[in-house]
């Protein structure tokens, strides 16, 4: 599965568009990580547990989108866009969408 966020795939030609595919996930870290982040908030610096959280949820959302595209018989997704929002303190929503195509 090829994922790009451009309209065309460099070096390939698109044959058929199969429509919109998307995936989303909402995840939260456990309370111990939240406590650690609260402490880190006093002195500043990177919150590694939250970076990890976002990376994991991004991967999961992308995997869901890929599964949907495979169900449609696509072998690439173009115009991939990510969007992030916070639902509650310590929870992150990741939404990813794109157009499934055949190359």
């Amino acid at each position: 599965m090829i994922l790009v966020n451009t309209e065309t795939i460099p070096g390939k030609t698109l044959h058929q568009s199969l429509g919109l595919v998307s995936g989303s996930t909402i995840r939260a870290k456990n309370f111990i990580n939240d406590l650690g982040a609260g402490f880190k908030n006093l002195i500043g610096g990177e919150l590694r547990s939250y970076t990890e959280l976002l990376e994991e949820s991004r991967k999961e959302a992308t995997d869901r989108m890929i599964a949907q595209a495979e169900g449609k018989g696509a072998n690439a997704i173009v115009c991939v866009r990510y969007s992030t929002s916070s639902i509650a303190s310590g929870a992150a929503e990741i939404y990813v969408y794109g157009t499934a195509v055949k190359i």
Partner: peptide, 19 residues
């Protein structure tokens, strides 16, 4: 320019503020 292949890459960071 001629490209052989293309793929998605991403990077993220969460930085906290201090008191």
């Amino acid at each position: 320019t001629n490209a052989e292949k293309a793929f998605l890459v991403s990077g993220s960071a969460v930085i906290a503020s201090d008191i």
